[in-house]
Design a protein around this nucleic acid. Structure first.
Lengths: 205, 205
DNA sequence: TTTTTTATTAAACATTTGTTTAGTTTTAAA
DNA sequence: TTTAAAACTAAACAAATGTTTAATAAAAAA
């Protein structure tokens, strides 16, 4: 790993944990074990480092749903099931970074980051829309509000992982309960969302 | 309005627009047209001001759903409909502040704010749980995952209002589109969510 | 009215912030 | 081996931040 990458990885970790404004360049330098000046040497500024972080993450993100659209072996509802599990898996493994991006978007203090971030967050939106659209066209799905159906799936998963506090309060759990690495919760969420989508989408239940 | 309240109202406005870290006490003082020192005089610190802001908002929030539980005139699904419209109305009129609270919770840098914030965000959670539970007991609703059903409703509404950028990208709107005061979107969201809950909850559709 | 408490101010304070400089070491090219 | 570019460092810089101080004005209590 190059020194530049070390800085980016440290920034990802610290931005995710403490937020962009809550992390100083000295924090990052210490964590990456480099001189503070190296951050400006490589990236120009703290803002530009954030942009690099977003680009770096985006480069690791491949569109997993584009090939799903033309898959002939899976039925529309099976494709939806697959999508739900993929989204849950991704969110659970990277919840803190995801919320970093959402915090940034909800503020929009750095407009130059807007498109890159929304690109990451909604990379798979078009394929999924198509899957639902096709299901309706074929007559397997009811004529639903496609965009808002999508919002429901993403919103449910996202909201549950806002914070341990929210999760505990909604689920009525004790204070020690941690959502993010909880396999049982993952399964429960998967089952709920699939069931929800089945009754919402399918004509013959 | 007292000077103390003027400061709180300015803080609400600026924290909502620019975030807590993004707002300086001098910003607030200027906006409230008071001397900077008055903030520490009245509140002690910027952190404590944030706490006062949260308490202040909480005092204006009454539980609208508690009386709904024992309402005999409305059927369970009508109660759900009412709840959905109430939640949408509230979120649309106060989206930025709501996101301020969610940003704070997702970071948890100020633990002393945790309970007050989750209290505001999930004030109505127990009555709504009860409404669904009763609907199941009476036999009108299917046996669903109550807590996650709630998460779906709140999550859908919340996610759609994350930012104009997210909203535009999901709905496929042009760049000028603004979500927050859009009556058509409000109606569309209401219809989608109600429809979703009907097919998810009702036994006889 | 005098005294005491409360409210208000401008200025200073101490830190922290992101950034730059000027110099040094290391690496690579000529 | 000499030279030029890149990598790296410690220190300094300037601006912004939250907070406190010391003094004054206003209000309330005695």
């Amino acid at each position: 790993m190059t020194k530049k990458e070390t800085i980016i990885e440290s920034a990802i970790k610290l931005f995710s944990d403490k937020g962009f404004e809550g992390t100083s360049v000295r924090d990052i330098a210490t964590h990456a074990d480099v001189n503070v000046a190296m951050i400006n040497y490589y990236f120009g500024s703290k803002d530009k480092l954030f942009e690099s972080v977003v680009e770096y993450k985006a480069s690791f993100l491949r569109g997993v749903f584009s090939e799903l659209v033309n898959n002939k072996k899976l039925s529309p509802i099976e494709k939806i099931d697959f999508m739900i599990d993929q989204l849950i898996e991704r969110k659970f493994s990277d919840a803190k970074f995801s919320h970093l991006l959402h915090r940034e978007l909800s503020l929009e203090l750095r407009p130059q980051l807007r498109d890159a971030i929304s690109g990451i967050l909604l990379k798979n939106i078009d394929p999924v829309k198509t899957i639902i659209k096709d299901g309706i066209k074929v007559g397997v799905f009811q004529p639903v509000d496609i965009e808002l159906t999508l919002t429901t799936v993403i919103g449910t998963i996202h909201y549950l992982l806002t914070s341990d506090t929210i999760c505990q309060k909604i689920l009525g759990k004790k204070e020690g309960f941690s959502a993010f690495q909880n396999k049982h919760l993952k399964k429960r969420l998967s089952e709920h969302t699939k069931k929800l989508m089945r009754s919402h989408l399918l004509k013959n239940k």
